[in-house]
Design a protein around this nucleic acid. Sequence first.
DNA 1: GCCAACGTTGGC
DNA 2: GCCAACGTTGGC
Length: 137
Amino acid sequence: MQYWLMKSEPSVYSWDQLQKDKRTHWNGVRNYQAAHNLRAMRNGDRAFFYHSNEGMAIVGICEIVKEAYPDPSDKTGKFVMVDVAPLKALPEPVTLATIKTLPKFKEMALIRLSRLSVQTVSREHWKMICKMGGITS
DNA sequence: GCCAACGTTGGC
DNA sequence: GCCAACGTTGGC
């Protein structure tokens, strides 16, 4: 299984909204590297849901429930979207500020490639963030 | 609101 | 194919 991190501005689409919707189309990605990651996602992969701009924290975990298919909002036909469903909220959101203070996360894309909206997360980072977020599984 | 970092566009 | 100009993202 692969782990991911997806960003959304809460004023555009928030974690709360996803929990209400039960499922959503992750559309609007217009960056090739992010799109490449979308295409690499497989059903059952897990992704952190990160609030950018406001909140600036990882707030929940979602699951990929439909693999990449054309994004109808893209007139050029080049970009794709996936469907995601919420799995569980982090009891304790993990903020960017916290992550930044820990040397182990220096190599994380969230820090290194701050503008990439869909990124991979290593298994090690995934586990640490889950633990910090209060998920003990 | 500002600005750094980065990506894209278009002229040459 | 280079690079300046411009647009966007996202932290602060």
